[in-house]
Nucleic acid binder design. Structure first.
Lengths: 151, 151
DNA sequence: TCATTATATATCGTGCCACGATATAACTAT
DNA sequence: ATAGTTATATCGTGGCACGATATATAATGA
C-alpha cells in the first residue's frame, strides 16, 4: 500500500505533539485577532498584561517586562516607546533608583485590557480542557516511547 | 500605603492570565532554543512537525501546512523553499492534481526532528501539570469575575 | 573619596520573516 | 470553450526583534 500521501505511518507521539502546537497556535491566533480588534498590536497587549498583572510588590521595570515577555531589554524599550506614544502606558522615574523606569498602565490601557481579559478568560475556559487532554496523551506516548527505548 | 511600585492591587484574574502567558512564552523559548541548537530555525521545526505529524491519509500540501502553522500560503511557500534548500523537506508534485505540492520530510529532517521530539516530550511532561494548574485558576477567577458582574 | 565595575535604560543600524498584491498554472462547471 | 475557482509561486514592503553601542546611575573597594 502506502499511498502517495502517507508514505509512512506517522508516529503517534509526533501526531499528538503536532496537535498540541496547532492548539497553541490557534489560541495565539485568537489572541492576536482579539488584540487587533481592540486596537492593539499583539505585543502591546502582552506588555499591558504583564505590567498590570504583575503580583503586588513587584517593581515593574523595563527589565521585568522584558523577562516576562521573553524579549531583550532593547526590544522592550521600543515596545514601551510605541505603547507610551499611544497613551497605553506611562513611564515614571524611580525615585529610589534613577536608572529605572517604573511602568504603569494608563486608564485608557486598562479599559482596553479589561475587554481583552474577559474574552481571553472565556476562550481559555474552552481551550483548557482541550490542552489538558492533549498534554495527557503526550505523557502517555512519551512514556511508551522511552520505555520502548529501554528494551 | 500604596508604594510607588504597586499603586493598585492587581486583579487576580489578570495575574493568573499573565502567569499563563509567561508559562507559554517560557515553553516557546525552550522550543526555539532547542530548534536553534539542532540547527533549525524555529519555524522550520514547526513545519517539519506538522508535516511529519499529520494524521495518516492527510494530503500534506502547502495549504495544509499553512493552516496548521497559522500562516498565509505565500509565507508557507517561502518557509518550504528555505527548508527544501537545506535538505530538510522535499516537494513532490501530486500526480492526481498537478497544482498541488505534496510535502515530505527527508531522512535528514527526520533525524533532527527525532531529537527535538524527545526533548519536547520531556519538557512538556514538566510543563503539563503547571499549565493545568494555571488553567484551573483561570476558570476559578473567571467565574468569580462573571458572577460578580451579574450582581 | 574616587576610580572601577556593574546595572538599567536608551539609541542606532541591520536583517529576517510574514504579509499584501499580483501572477501563473491547473482543475471545475456550465 | 470559457469563466470561475483553487493551489502555488513571485515580488516588493514594512515592522519588529536583535546585536552593538552609548549614557547615566549605583554599588564596590582600595
Amino acid at each position: 500500500m502506502s499511498s502517495q500521501f502517507t508514505a509512512e505511518g506517522s508516529d503517534p507521539l509526533l501526531t499528538v505533539l503536532a496537535e498540541f502546537r496547532f492548539a497553541l497556535r490557534s489560541f495565539l491566533h485568537f489572541s492576536e485577532c482579539a488584540a487587533q480588534e481592540a486596537g492593539l498590536h499583539p505585543q502591546q497587549h502582552q506588555l499591558l498584561l504583564q505590567v498590570a498583572g504583575a503580583p503586588r510588590g513587584t517593581a515593574v521595570t523595563i527589565a521585568y517586562a522584558a523577562e516576562r515577555l521573553g524579549l531583550r531589554h532593547n526590544s522592550t524599550v521600543e515596545l514601551v516607546d510605541r505603547s507610551e506614544r499611544e497613551g497605553l502606558l506611562a513611564r515614571t522615574e524611580d525615585a529610589a533608583d534613577k536608572r529605572r523606569a517604573i511602568l504603569q498602565v494608563t486608564r485608557k490601557g486598562k479599559k482596553i485590557l479589561g475587554q481583552l481579559t474577559a474574552s481571553h478568560a472565556r476562550e481559555l475556559n474552552e481551550l483548557g480542557p482541550r490542552l489538558a487532554k492533549v498534554l495527557k496523551q503526550i505523557s502517555v506516548h512519551a512514556e511508551a516511547a522511552s520505555s520502548a527505548e529501554i528494551q
